[in-house]
C-alpha cells in the first residue's frame, strides 16, 4: 500500500531527491571546473565538502527546531539535504583522489588532503548544527 510504503520508496521522495541531487551535482561540477587543483590537491572538492557540511548541519538543526520531520519540513529535508547537499558534497572523489595521491608516492599530500577535509568538515558540521540550533531562539 502506498500509504504505508517506506519513505525512501515513495514517488514524491524520489522526485525531490532526484531534482535536488541533479542541482547539487551540477553546482559541484561547475565549482570543480572553475577552481583548478593547487599542486595536485583538489581544493575545489575540499571547499565543496566543508561548505556543504556546514550548510547541512545548519539546515537539519533549523528544521529540527521548527518541528517534527513531516510535511513541508520533510520535503525540504529531502530536496535540500538529501538532494542538493548530498549531491553537492562527495565522498568518492575524496577517497579516490587521496588514493591517487598515495599511488603517486605523494603520501604527505594524501594525508594532508584527507586529514584537512575530515577535520574541517567535522568542525563545519558541528558549527552548522550549533548555529541552526540557536537561530531565532531566546
Amino acid at each position: 500500500m502506498s500509504a504505508t510504503r517506506s519513505l525512501h520508496l515513495r514517488g514524491r521522495s524520489v522526485g525531490l531527491v532526484f531534482v535536488g541531487g541533479a542541482l547539487g551535482t551540477g553546482l559541484r561540477a561547475l565549482v570543480s571546473a572553475a577552481v583548478p587543483p593547487v599542486s595536485g590537491l583538489p581544493v575545489a572538492v575540499l571547499g565543496v565538502d566543508v561548505v556543504g557540511a556546514f550548510v547541512l548541519g545548519l539546515l537539519l538543526a533549523t528544521l529540527h527546531r521548527a518541528g517534527p520531520d513531516e510535511g513541508r519540513r520533510r520535503d525540504l529535508r529531502l530536496l535540500l539535504g538529501t538532494g542538493v547537499l548530498g549531491g553537492f558534497t562527495t565522498y568518492s572523489a575524496l577517497a579516490a583522489d587521496t588514493a591517487g595521491l598515495a599511488d603517486q608516492a605523494r603520501v604527505g599530500a594524501a594525508l594532508l588532503y584527507a586529514g584537512a577535509t575530515l577535520v574541517l568538515g567535522l568542525a563545519a558540521a558541528f558549527a552548522g548544527l550549533r548555529c541552526g540550533g540557536r537561530r531565532g531562539g531566546r
Binding site: 559541484r28 537539519l60 562527495t90
Partner: peptide, 17 residues
C-alpha cells in the same frame, strides 16, 4: 559516471553530520 553518478551517490555532508 564518476563526477555525476558516483559524486551524487556518495556524500560527505551527511557523513560529517
Amino acid at each position: 559516471v564518476g563526477t555525476g553518478f558516483l559524486g551524487g551517490y556518495t556524500t560527505f555532508s551527511t557523513a560529517a553530520v
